[in-house]
């Protein structure tokens, strides 16, 4: 994570007039992704919020072509597009599969596993808002423990941990897996620019807070994403070839998990059951310790993890 002297391309490839909700980090994520990738790009979008966001058949809010496909097929349709472009002499075009958490963690996992195992030359990005938001906030296997959704009501909230998609992809030994969030745009862009140069299957896990789904005001979403990193709920990391682990950032101060939870209405009921909050804390710590161990195995030390206060 380099904070000084980082530049952001001025070019906007996501145009005004897209129809994302206010405060949608899924839109901001696409904006950053395309700043990093440029326009020699073809995007494949399965059923997800972005089916709507990019515009209906009469409008198109992106400066790159988009092929809409069925829910479970982003990874394989992108594979097909790459093969088709290659056969037409356009193999240098980056093909981006852009899917939500439902299309990635759940229904699309089979095709992702296939494409990852074959090391298809595509970038797969999941903008993870931690539930089926486009259909009205139903739980997915990306929904975190304790969260309210319309299918995990507050009286019986989500009782399973979030599926560890990053480890699943790492286990496929793909060249590049990264976690990013638009709350740390310089980290986001650096990773996109790095991934662009890599050949093979590249995976981005983007934490993408959703104001209506997370039950918070629309101006909270960047703050929520930032707190997710600061509380270690969502560590920023890279995994190369399934073995080289790098934690990109550790906030130098302890931020209590409650700061992250209290921002979001979907966790409101949790404050009546402090033991559940303790349980989440334990899980977060366990995961962080594991990542530290992997980072140390890779780098021989954990001292090289960036630990500065960049944002409040």
């Amino acid at each position: 994570m380099i904070m000084r002297n980082w530049t952001v391309p001025m070019e906007e490839n996501l145009l005004k007039g897209h129809v994302a909700c206010q405060g949608c980090l899924g839109a901001l994520s696409m904006r950053l992704m395309l700043k990093g990738l440029g326009t020699n790009v073809a995007v494949v979008i399965p059923a997800c919020c972005w089916t709507i966001i990019s515009g209906d058949v009469l409008y198109h809010a992106l400066k790159v072509p988009v092929f809409h496909t069925a829910f479970e097929t982003a990874a394989i349709t992108a594979t097909g597009v790459k093969a088709g472009l290659t056969m037409r002499g356009k193999g240098d075009t980056t093909v981006l599969a852009w899917a939500g958490d439902g299309g990635t963690f759940d229904i699309g996992l089979q095709a992702i596993s296939g494409a990852a195992e074959r090391n298809e030359d595509i970038i797969y990005a999941v903008y993870d808002n931690e539930a089926y938001m486009n259909t009205g906030i139903q739980r997915s296997s990306a929904t975190p423990y304790g969260a309210w959704t319309t299918t995990t009501p507050a009286k019986r909230p989500e009782d399973k941990p979030k599926k560890d998609i990053v480890e699943i992809l790492a286990a496929h030994r793909v060249p590049y897996v990264a976690t990013v969030t638009p709350a740390y745009p310089e980290d986001f862009l650096r990773k996109v620019e790095k991934a662009k140069k890599i050949k093979g299957f590249r995976f981005f896990h983007i934490l993408s807070p959703c104001p209506p789904g997370w039950k918070m005001p629309s101006d909270y979403s960047v703050q929520a994403a930032r707190l997710a990193v600061q509380t270690k709920v969502f560590p920023l990391l890279e995994i190369e070839n399934g073995e080289k682990y790098t934690i990109n950032y550790e906030y130098p101060k302890d931020v209590p998990l409650e700061e992250y939870l209290k921002l979001q209405g979907r966790f409101k009921h949790l404050f009546k059951t402090p033991e559940k909050i303790e349980h989440i804390k334990e899980q977060v710590k366990k995961r962080w310790d594991y990542l530290l161990m992997r980072h140390k195995l890779t780098h021989g030390t954990t001292d090289n993890i960036v630990r500065k206060v960049f944002y409040k």
């Binding site: 073809a42 494949v44 092929f67 496909t69 069925a70 479970e72 097929t73 394989i76 349709t77 992108a78 594979t79 097909g80 597009v81 790459k82 093969a83 088709g84 472009l85 056969m87 037409r88 356009k90 089979q110 095709a111 596993s113 296939g114 195992e117």
Partner: peptide, 18 residues
């Protein structure tokens, strides 16, 4: 890894003009 994907790959490839 499945026929569903076989057809989806053909769809992507054909959409790209192959």
């Amino acid at each position: 890894e499945s026929e569903h994907s076989a057809m989806s790959a053909c769809i992507g490839a054909s959409a790209a003009g192959a």
